[in-house]
Deep mutational scan, measured.
Amino acid sequence: DLSGKLIIKAQLGEDIRRIPIHNEDITYDELVLMMQRVFRGKLLSNDEVTIKYKDEDGDLITIFDSSDLSFAIQCSRILKLTLFVNG
Rank of each mutant, 00 (worst) to 15 (best):
L2V: 02
K9D: 15
S45A: 11
L60Y: 09
E30S: 06
E30I: 02
I16D: 03
D55P: 14
K52Y: 08
K52M: 13
E24Y: 07
D59Q: 15
L69K: 00
I21S: 05
L33I: 10
Y53V: 04
I21D: 03
D25H: 10
I61H: 15
S45P: 09
D55C: 13
K80Q: 15
V38F: 05
R17H: 13
T82E: 15
L60E: 08
R18S: 15
Q36E: 08
N46E: 14
D1R: 04
I19M: 07
D29F: 05
K54R: 11
R37L: 08
S66V: 01
S70C: 06
R17V: 13
T62D: 15
Q11H: 07
Q74P: 03
K9A: 15
L44C: 07
V38K: 03
E30H: 05
L60W: 14
I78K: 07
F84I: 08
S70P: 01
I19Y: 03
F39G: 00
I51H: 02
D15N: 09
Q36K: 12
Y28V: 03
S67Q: 08
R37D: 15
L69N: 02
S76C: 09
E24L: 12
L69S: 01
S70I: 07
R37V: 12
K54P: 11
I16A: 11
S66G: 06
I7H: 06
I7P: 01
D68H: 06
E56S: 13
G58W: 00
M34T: 10
I63K: 02
I16P: 01
K80T: 12
I51N: 02
L33K: 11
H22R: 09
G58Y: 01
F39L: 00
D65Q: 06
L2M: 14
S66Y: 02
A10T: 03
L69I: 06
D55F: 05
K42Y: 05
S45R: 12
M34Q: 14
K54V: 10
K42C: 07
N46L: 05
I21R: 02
L69V: 10
H22L: 10
T27L: 02
V38E: 14
L31Y: 01
E56C: 09
L81G: 01
F64Y: 13
G13M: 04
D57I: 15
G58N: 09
I73C: 07
I7W: 09
I21L: 09
L83D: 00
